[in-house]
Design a protein around this nucleic acid. Sequence first.
DNA 1: TTCGTCAAGAGGGGGA
DNA 2: TCCCCCTCTTGACGAA
Length: 219
Amino acid sequence: MGDHGLELTIAVPGFSSSSGSEGGGCNTNGNNYNMRELDINQPAFGEDEMEFPMGSIEEEIDEGREAQRPKKLRLSKEQSRLLEESFRQNHTLNPKQKEALAMKLKLRPRQVEVWFQNRRARTKLKQTEMECEYLKRCFGSLTEENRRLQREVEELRALRMAPPTVLSPHTHEPLPASSFTMCPRCERVTAAIPVRASAARPQPPTFSPFNPRRPSAAF
DNA sequence: TTCGTCAAGAGGGGGA
DNA sequence: TCCCCCTCTTGACGAA
């Protein structure tokens, strides 16, 4: 903060950020309220008369001329630009900054305050939406990774349940799985002499012969 | 007519 | 108790 005169201290008699002036905005039928004149860039108060535009409109409402004016304030491009500029510098305003900015924009401090509140809310909403999208993408990629790993597990289980058939060079009968061992020199699976025929039952592997680079501890 | 946006009100919480 | 902020809501308005 610092430029744009936001550090300016301005004392405005009868106005504060929560002076209840907005309370006078609502008329008794619950309708909205003291909307400003269409040309909100018109000077709201003269050189020697500190009066915010809403106040003057309230007086007009009292005179029964409210039907002639728009009911909703739209900030001008220049007002929005200045507010955005201030918001980029600081997401909150102290009372002095608020007063100064209101003076500069010819708005009430309450309007500046509301604009910043809504702007913060919009920023937070946008951030939340972006976080949501990011988490969705994370969920999608993790789901895909999970599927891939599940498939891999299934494949490994299938291979474990149906070991490759190796015929004995002597009997030409299939060797049991327990007869396989690993050659320490070439790191290939070789057939050992079967101890018992019942050992053909699948054993918990200490080594996965079908994927030597990958430990089988994931089972 | 519907829908999205936005200014503003209402109400509640927290800090001094 | 007051002030400020946050959240939810309302109502006006413009675009499709």
